[in-house]
Design a protein around this nucleic acid. Structure first.
Lengths: 211, 211
DNA sequence: AGAACATAATGAACTACGTTCATTAAATGT
DNA sequence: ACATTTAATGAACGTAGTTCATTATGTTCT
């Protein structure tokens, strides 16, 4: 606990630390713009350096490699998504709430498609596993559905509710992914919304009637 | 209708055409091995040429670029998948048949994961849309579920049945994608099978009871 | 068969990318 | 003010996909 205190009091390493933090932010902001605009595949180290106003090599003083930077951008996307889906308060109509979450997911994906796609397109180089902090971030998405589902399913143990939540999220994700895939012969927005809404009806009806 | 006849009778362009076809096959076979073994990201032009026993540049006499070659491999994967899911004859228990298809999809994906992933990982370079023949191949996957679903849902028009089939496939795909994603904290195979089976129960129950 | 022509195969070279590292510049400590 | 530690720099490297002048191989005609 000593080091930061000494730095704070003396100001010794402080400036360089905040400069580095500044650079990280500038790089993340620039990367966010590129990924949000043209998608993950448009992210190029040289372009990024130019946008952030730093040298090419400076990227690697702020991040170990581009993968680390991309994961940070994805983490930002995940919290944006979480905020977009945030449940206002306690909700009386529980089914409605689950439908709202599913449609919210679809709407966020549609409105931020390249950013949202980056969450699933990005692959670590072989041998390097996802860092734990990132896996944790992602699992928060599932937990977002777990709470409303748990209220809807007072029967069953916590584990089976967790699995059902995951199942539901996966199905909604699949319908979203394939629904947004085809740019040609495009499914009209309202039609896809309707399909996802129908799906929620079907799924929730099936859940209830089965116990 | 003239040209091929003249070629056939004279044998003029015949050899070179079959040679080219041979090269295409060797390249596709080699690419299939690499993608099936190490995934799409392991496919390298120079390695491919070596495996196929041809020069680097020869790849581009057989295919316009690697994207075209990858799409051909994916087309092979799609027919393999179709064969794996082929319905034996007419099936009496329709729900069972749909569950068989869903589990068949999961099992194919699990048993051929890198190949199967390549179907969804590959992206065309910006500006180049998917060729129509490939989009058609892919839509055959959906039609595979459409027939059993149609038998299960005598009510409703053809279009709504088509949409339901697509919805069901998308949901199954989503559960498969996310279920196979996490190599760490791996869902045991039987557990994932059980979840997908449960999902089909829930979905089909919801379908029936809603009319 | 052999010359003239057409077609295909070749791999060095080009472009574009991520990453590294010897060099230069800046910040910090005395 | 100087010495020392720390950060920024961009040329250079390794690895990609793709191209194209050159070489080799077929095909056609006499």
């Amino acid at each position: 606990m000593g080091p930061w205190r000494i730095e704070f009091l003396s100001g010794s390493k402080d400036k360089s630390a905040t400069r580095r933090e500044n650079l990280r932010e500038r790089l993340l902001d620039a990367a966010e713009v590129v990924i949000g605009d043209k998608g993950l595949s448009a992210l190029k180290a040289r372009d990024l350096a130019e946008r952030a106003g730093c040298a090419l090599g400076a990227i690697y003083t702020a991040f170990h490699d581009l993968d680390e930077l991309i994961l940070q951008v994805n983490a930002r996307t995940l919290s944006q998504l979480e905020q977009a889906l945030a449940t206002p308060h306690e909700v009386p109509k529980k089914k409605k709430e689950l439908r709202r979450l599913a449609l919210g997911y679809l709407h966020y994906a549609r409105a931020n498609e390249p950013r949202w796609r980056a969450l699933f397109e990005h692959r670590m180089p072989p041998g390097k596993p996802l860092p734990n902090w990132y896996a944790d971030e992602r699992s928060r998405l599932f937990m977002l559905l777990e709470a409303p589902l748990a209220r809807l399913l007072p029967h069953g143990d916590a584990e089976s509710r967790r699995l059902k939540a995951r199942m539901l999220f996966s199905a909604v994700h699949g319908i979203t992914v394939l629904g947004l895939e085809e740019k040609l012969a495009p499914t009209p927005e309202a039609a896809l919304d309707g399909q996802l809404s129908d799906f929620m009806d079907i799924f929730l009806r099936g859940l209830n009637d089965g116990g």
